[in-house]
Amino acid sequence: MTHDDSAQSQPSTQNDLSPAELAGIADVLRDAGVDLAGPLTSRLIAGGRSNLTYRLDDGAAAWVMRTPPRAGRTPSAHDVAREYRVIKALGPTDVPVAPAVAVSEDDTLLGGDFAICGFVEGRAIQAQAELDTLTDAQLEKTVEALSGTLAALHRVDHVAVGLERFGRPDAYAARQHKRWTGQWDIVGTHLDPSVHQLAERLATRLADHLPEQASTGIVHGDYRLDNTLVQIDGDDVRVAAVVDWELSTIGDPVADVASMCVYRDPAFDLIMGSPCAWTSPRLPDVEGLAAAYERAGGVPLRDFDQHLALGYYKLAVISAGIDHRYRAGAAHGDGFDTAGQAVPLLLEAGLARLPR
């Protein structure tokens, strides 16, 4: 729920916050015990294909607010109150997150829930050009930091931190399969029939080869470099905060590792609209990332190919959802007009991971 201050803001759009909305957000902050130094201003931070992310300022301090898109929403895909809950629970743990400040589930102000966290200084490395400024030593340390942070998340006792009801602990793969198949039925209806056939084949084969769950923990659901803020000092690299928790739940940690690896696919560039950091050939491949996670003390990666196939299916549905919002006129900018092209590529990659 944070981004670095150097991120570029988007041009004026229907997503701008009005003075009345900013005044209402200020009231929510005051109710949470925040002593504001002056009127709030806002800036829509670039990046993200789902929830909107704003930087809020009062002239003395800064916060980050997350809220669903104003139009083209899909059910269960933009739950910022849920996102806030996991961030607040992880605050006292070894997992780096932004300080939780306030949440509002009153949709009369912005048309949806919104959550506010403290601003965290750090670099959001999103583009390959940004990654290329790192030395090989810094890049190696970055991969180690990412792997260690994800392994630390998976070691958290979700019951001990108050997340015992955050999600069902069992049958994670089956629930994910059902969820993303349901989402496909909502957002994939406009795509070519040949793409529908690919999605049906992958969904059917996944149902026959679902991975068995051997461990349970907190799953981020969208973990990769550009969903973290990193602080770099020479060759020392640390993760300052893990962000974008909207897909988090309780489930199988192996799926989190698989999802991270799926984002290495070049098709991800079509979703982002330009060469992104996480698809860079300078980074380890799927096997290298999996090995780095295991070295960091993560859970054993059992049934990993099946998890990868499920991860490709999930990302294909997310891509179809981005294309769905673009065609509905609810989103624009780099990546929104090309996300649909990624869908068949991801479905085919998922099929390649499963036995025929």
Rank of each mutant, 00 (worst) to 15 (best):
A124Q: 11
I232H: 03
R327E: 13
T74G: 06
A23N: 10
A7G: 03
H78K: 05
Q183C: 13
A199K: 13
R353C: 04
H78C: 02
V28K: 07
A203V: 11
S12M: 01
W180Y: 15
D226R: 03
E140V: 00
A98F: 11
N51Q: 05
E140F: 00
E246L: 09
V286T: 12
L134F: 03
R165Y: 11
Q183M: 13
T228K: 09
H190V: 08
R30W: 04
G251H: 10
L315H: 00
S6I: 01
H3S: 14
H190A: 10
A296E: 07
L310Y: 08
T279N: 13
V230I: 14
G234N: 11
H177M: 07
I322R: 05
H307C: 01
P344M: 08
L17A: 09
Y84K: 03
I25V: 15
D192N: 12
V257E: 07
S147C: 04
D16F: 06
T181D: 12
T67I: 13
V28W: 02
L163I: 14
I322N: 02
P266E: 05
L109I: 15
K88N: 08
S319P: 04
M1F: 06
V242W: 11
D256W: 10
D226V: 12
S12L: 04
W180Q: 15
D285H: 00
S42C: 09
D323E: 11
T228M: 14
G188E: 03
V159Y: 01
Y84T: 02
D79A: 15
S50H: 06
S215H: 14
I25F: 01
A7K: 10
I25N: 01
I322E: 06
A309V: 05
D285V: 05
I125F: 08
G251C: 05
V219T: 14
S194W: 02
Q14T: 01
H78P: 08
Y313W: 13
R282T: 00
D4A: 12
T204Y: 14
T149L: 00
A89F: 08
R49W: 10
L346D: 11
G329H: 09
H177G: 08
N15T: 02
V159S: 04
A145K: 02
L229R: 10
A309F: 05
R327M: 12
Q128Y: 09
A291H: 03
Q197I: 12
A328F: 00
T338E: 06
S50E: 07
T41I: 05
G33K: 06
P99Q: 12
Q306P: 01
R85P: 14
G118R: 09
R205K: 11
V103P: 15
L354E: 04
T149F: 00
A258H: 07
W245Q: 13
A89G: 09
D334V: 15
P96V: 11
G59K: 15
V95K: 12
L247W: 12
L202W: 08
R168F: 07
V97N: 05
I125E: 04
G112F: 11
D94Q: 09
F268C: 15
D244M: 14
A292N: 02
L56H: 10
C117Y: 07
D305L: 01
V34H: 00
G47V: 07
T13V: 13
K88C: 04
S194E: 15
M1L: 12
T2S: 15
G118Y: 07
P39T: 01
D58V: 14
R43V: 01
T249A: 09
A102T: 15
A349L: 14
R356T: 10
Q14K: 12
